[in-house]
């Protein structure tokens, strides 16, 4: 074996070795790398019960209710299989709207309501001018955006 061939194998071994080690480590950490849990995962009991965690999904169309005279907002978050009611008091980000993705951090109460301390909007990968969006979904974006 020439020295060059030996070095080639050494470099390949480094990449494969580090790759394998990283894969195993990431597999082990998989749960901690999830930024949020979906409503189905929560219903299946995968979310940590007592600790606060993040819930992610789409805001159900027609579910947003604001209580007059306070900052409280109630809405439900869905992944089309399960739905979780959320209550939140505070300012909502620009992109928060019905049918769009959100990630809320908070705790799940015993009655099944998720009380959020923070609500972030999750943007999807679609970019289009307003006219195109209008022609795609009429009336306003139906949850799912299957169009």
């Amino acid at each position: 074996m020439t020295p060059r061939r030996k070095r080639m194998l050494a470099v390949a071994a480094i990449v494969i070795g580090v790759g394998a080690a990283t894969t195993v480590a990431l597999q082990a950490l998989n749960e901690n790398l999830l930024y949020f849990y979906s409503p189905s995962q929560i219903m299946a009991g995968e979310a940590p019960g007592e600790r606060s965690f993040r819930l992610g999904g789409l805001v159900t169309t027609g579910s947003v209710q604001r209580s007059p005279g306070s900052m409280e907002v109630r809405f439900t978050v869905t992944d089309h299989a399960q739905t979780i009611p959320v209550s939140y008091t505070g300012l909502l980000p620009d992109l928060f709207r019905e049918g769009q993705g959100v990630v809320a951090r908070g705790k799940l109460l015993d009655d099944g309501t998720f009380v959020a301390e923070e609500v972030l909007a999750k943007h999807d990968e679609n970019y289009m001018p307003p006219e195109v969006a209008e022609s795609l979904h009429q009336p306003p974006p139906a949850a799912g955006g299957a169009s």
């Binding site: 979906s38 990630v103 999750k122």
Partner: peptide
């Protein structure tokens, strides 16, 4: 794709 992230997928 591998994990739930706040960042959106590829466009």
């Amino acid at each position: 794709y591998w994990w739930n992230t706040l960042h959106q997928g590829a466009t």
